[in-house]
Design a protein around this nucleic acid. Structure first.
Lengths: 208, 208
DNA sequence: GCGGGGTGTGAACTCGGGTTCATTCCTTCT
DNA sequence: AGAAGGAATGAACCCGAGTTCACACCCCGC
C-alpha cells in the first residue's frame, strides 16, 4: 500500500467540496431548485459532472446539505436573540426584524429554503428547519404569555402564523429577482413586524 | 360532408371532459401535483392516455384549468362576504373563518392550490388566484381603515400576511393526510382567526 | 523516474413521464 | 346497410435530468 493522503491533498479535496457546495447554493439563490441541475453545478464550480458524485452520493444529499448549512446559520441568528435577556416584546421585535431583513438579502434563496418543495429527502430537512424556526418564536411567545405581556394565544399556532406571514409577504408574491430597493425593503420589514407584533401583543401601533 | 355533431354527442363529449377534470382534481386532492400524471388521470377517469389530449393541448392546460376552476369558486365565496354590508370587523372575521374552514375540508388540495409550485404556465394561474384572494382581504382592510375601525396598517402587506398565516398554520406543516378531527380543526381555525384579527384591529381577545 | 492507487472526466446509459400517431371503433347521414 | 369521418386507444417515441463507468491523469512513496 503505497499511498496515504497527505494533509495538503486532504485540504484540496475539502476545498473542492466547498467550491461545489457554494456554486450549488448560488445557483439555487438565483433560480430556485430548478436551476441547480448537476450539470450546471459542475460547470459553475469548474469540475466535471461525475466529480460531484465523489463528494455526495446523490443530488438529493447535496441539496440537503445546502438546506442544512444555510438554515442552521439562520436559525442560529434567531436563536441568539431568543436566548438573550431582553423582555419578550423586545425579543419578538428583534427576531422578526432580523430574520426578515436577512431573508430580504437573498429573496430567492429564502424562498427556496422556506417554501419551495423539492424531493422528499430534502423536504425532510426543510421541514426540520421550518420547525426550528417556528420553535424559536414559540419560545418567545410562551415566555411573553407567562409574564403576562401577551394575551392567551396558542403559541404553536401563532408561531406558525408568524412564519407564514413572513413567507408570503416577504418572498411569496415575488417575481424572481424583483429588486425594489433598500428603502422599500425597510418599509416592508417594518410593516410585517408591526403586523406580527399587533397579532402577538394585541396592541395597535408601535414605533421604534 | 356527412356529419354534424348531434346534441347528444356534444353532451357526451362534455361529460367525458368533466370526468377527466374531476379525476385529475381528485388525484391532486390527495397526492398533490405529483400524483396527477397523465397516465393516472386517464386510468382513473376510465379513458386512454391519448384521449386526454383531445380535450387539452397539454398537461399544463389541464392543470391550469383545475386551478382556475377551484380557485374561482373559493374566491367567489370570500368575495360574497366582502361585498355584503356588514361592518369591516365582522366581514374580516367571517372571511377568515369561512376561507379557513373550507380549506381544511381539503387540506391537500388547498395546499396544492395555494403553495405548491408547478410548471410556469400553471404558476401564472395560481398567482392570479392568490392575488385575488389577497385583494379581497385588502378591500376589507382598506374599508376598515377608512372608517377608523383598524389602525393605519398597509393593506397590501397586511393582506399578504393574512394569506400567509393561513397557508402556514393551516396546510403548511401538514404531513399528507393528517386528519386531526373536527374539534381540533375548529380550534385551529379559531386561533388563526384571532391571530389575524388582533393583527388587523390591534385589540386582544375576541370571541364570537 | 517509475509503479500504483486515488482523483477527475464526460460521454453514454437509464428511467420517468409527457406527447404523438397509426389504427380501430363508433356515430351520423344517405 | 354502407360510406364517411370524428373519437378513442395505447404502444411507441422523445426528451430532459440524474447517475454511472471505463479511461486518462496526477500525486505519492520507493
Amino acid at each position: 500500500m503505497a499511498y496515504r493522503r497527505t494533509e495538503r491533498a486532504t485540504k484540496r479535496l475539502a476545498d473542492k467540496r466547498q467550491r461545489i457546495l457554494r456554486a450549488a447554493r448560488e445557483l439555487v439563490a438565483d433560480g430556485g431548485w430548478a436551476a441547480a441541475q448537476v450539470d450546471h453545478v459542475a460547470l459553475r464550480s469548474g469540475v466535471a459532472t461525475g466529480s460531484v458524485y465523489r463528494h455526495w452520493a446523490s443530488k438529493s444529499e447535496l441539496c440537503a446539505e445546502i438546506v442544512a448549512t444555510v438554515s442552521a446559520h439562520e436559525v442560529g441568528v434567531v436563536r441568539a436573540i431568543v436566548e438573550s435577556d431582553e423582555a419578550p416584546v423586545e425579543k419578538l421585535t428583534a427576531a422578526i426584524r432580523t430574520f426578515a431583513s436577512r431573508a430580504l438579502q437573498g429573496r430567492r434563496l429564502a424562498y427556496a429554503l422556506i417554501a419551495e418543495p423539492v424531493d422528499p429527502e430534502v423536504e425532510t430537512v426543510r421541514l426540520e428547519y421550518r420547525a426550528q424556526l417556528a420553535h424559536c418564536f414559540e419560545r418567545i411567545l410562551r415566555e411573553g404569555i407567562m409574564r403576562g405581556a401577551f394575551p392567551r394565544l396558542d403559541p404553536a399556532v401563532a408561531a406558525a402564523c408568524i412564519v407564514g406571514a413572513f413567507m408570503e409577504a416577504l418572498v411569496g408574491p415575488l417575481a424572481p429577482s424583483k429588486g425594489t430597493g433598500a428603502r422599500a425593503d425597510r418599509y416592508l420589514v417594518e410593516q410585517i413586524a408591526q403586523f406580527c407584533l399587533r397579532a402577538s401583543i394585541g396592541t395597535a401601533e408601535r414605533k421604534a
